[in-house]
Design a binder for these strands. Structure first.
Lengths: 194, 194
DNA sequence: GTAGACAATGAATTGTTATTCATTTTTGTG
DNA sequence: CACAAAAATGAATAACAATTCATTGTCTAC
C-alpha cells in the first residue's frame, strides 16, 4: 500500500464516494469503484487495505475537512447567536457542496462506527461545539437559563440533519443554504413567536 | 409461501427484527434469523419471498401499527399545541417500546425505499400530520403566520429523530418519553424564551 | 539501450451466504 | 392405525464479490 497520498489515491477515494452514494456501501462493488476510477480492481488494493478501509478513509478525510471549516465558522462569530448562525450556514454549505458526502454521512456513519469504534466522530464534535455556543448564549443572556443543554444540542443537530435529509431525497434540486437563516430563527424564536 | 399470517410468521418477523437491529440488514444472515426463531433456514422461505422481503414486511407491519397510534393520538388533541404534544409523546413512547424497530427505522428505511419505491413511507405520513397541525395552529393563533410550513415540519421531525437517535446510541438506558414535553416547549418557545 | 525497481493489471482463487429441493416429520382424517 | 396432505428440514447448489498474485507495463538512472 502506497504511503504518500498520490493523485490516484484521491481519484479512487472520490470515485468510491460517488459509487457508495449511488448504491450504498454494501451493494457497491470494488469493480464498480475501479471502473469509476478508471483503474483495475487490483489497483484499489495498492492504496487501501480493504473495502471497509475505503469507507473509513473517505469519512475520516471529509470529517477533518468539514470540521475545520466549522471551527473557523464558529470562531468568526462575535456572539452566541452569530456563532450558531455561522455554524448552521457552514454545515449546509459544505453538504450542499458535496452531495455524495451528504448521502454517505447520512447512510453509512452508523456502520463505520461499528467497525471502527474509535474514529473522529463528526456528530460528537458538532455536539460539543453546540454545547459551548449554548452555554455562551446563556451567559450573554440571549438564551434562556432553564435550557437542558443535552436536549437542546440534539434538538438543533437533529433539525439540521432533517433538513439536509429532505434535500438529499429531493436529489439536491433546491438551494439548501438559504434554509440556514429561517432555521436559526426557528431555533431562537420557536413556533409561537414573541 | 403461506397465505395467512400464522404464529410462525410473526415469530420469524420478530426474530429478524432482533437480528437486523443487532447486525444491520446487510451483515445479518438468514441462518442467524433462523437460529433466533428456532427454525431451519429453509423454513424462512415458506413464509417470505427472500431476504429483502423480510425487511419489507417488518417495516410495513410496524409502520401500520405506529401510524394508527399516531393518528389516534393526534385526533385526541383538542387544539394544535395539544395535538403536537400528543404526537411527539406517542412517537417517543412507541419507539421506546420497541428498540429494535427504532434501530431498523433509523438504519434501513433508506435501503428499503430503494428496493420498494412505492411503500407506505412513515416519514411522509408523519410530515403530512405535522402540516395539518401547523396549519391549524396558525388558524388558532398559537403559531406564527409567517412560518414556512415545509421547513417547520422537517425541523420538528428532524429534532425528534435526533433525540431518538441519541437514545438508541445510548442503548436505551434512559427514559425517552420524558423528553416529549421539554422538546415541545423548545419547538414552541425556542431558545430565546418570551 | 537496458537493468532494475516500481506500479498496474485482471484472471483466478476463496470465502461467504442466499436460495433450492429431495427427504423427513408432523398433522389431520376416516 | 393407516394414509395423504401439509409443513419443516438442512445439506447441496449457485451466485456473487472481495481479495490475491503471477504477469505485464512503465519509468529512471547510468
Amino acid at each position: 500500500m502506497q504511503k504518500n497520498k498520490s493523485e490516484k489515491y484521491y481519484k479512487i477515494l472520490d470515485s468510491a464516494g460517488a459509487v457508495f452514494a449511488r448504491h450504498g456501501f454494501h451493494k457497491a462493488t470494488i469493480s464498480q469503484i475501479a471502473a469509476e476510477a478508471g483503474v483495475a480492481d487490483g489497483t484499489i488494493y495498492l492504496y487501501f487495505k480493504n473495502k471497509d478501509d475505503i469507507l473509513y478513509q473517505i469519512i475520516s478525510f471529509k470529517t477533518d475537512l468539514v470540521f475545520n471549516k466549522m471551527h473557523q465558522a464558529v470562531e468568526s462569530g462575535k456572539n452566541a447567536e452569530e456563532k450558531l448562525r455561522r455554524l448552521i450556514h457552514c454545515h449546509l454549505e459544505e453538504f450542499q457542496g458535496d452531495q455524495n458526502m451528504a448521502v454517505i454521512f447520512q447512510s453509512e456513519v452508523r456502520y463505520l462506527r461499528e467497525i471502527q469504534s474509535q474514529f473522529k466522530d463528526i456528530s460528537k464534535m458538532y455536539l460539543d461545539l453546540l454545547s459551548e455556543i449554548i452555554e455562551q448564549g446563556q451567559i450573554e443572556g440571549c438564551m434562556r437559563q432553564d435550557l437542558f443543554v443535552g436536549l437542546v444540542k440534539r434538538f438543533i443537530l437533529g433539525a439540521v440533519e432533517g433538513v439536509i435529509s429532505t434535500w438529499v431525497s429531493a436529489e439536491g434540486r433546491y438551494d439548501l443554504v438559504s434554509m440556514a437563516d429561517p432555521l436559526v430563527d426557528l431555533y431562537m424564536t420557536g413556533l409561537k413567536g414573541e
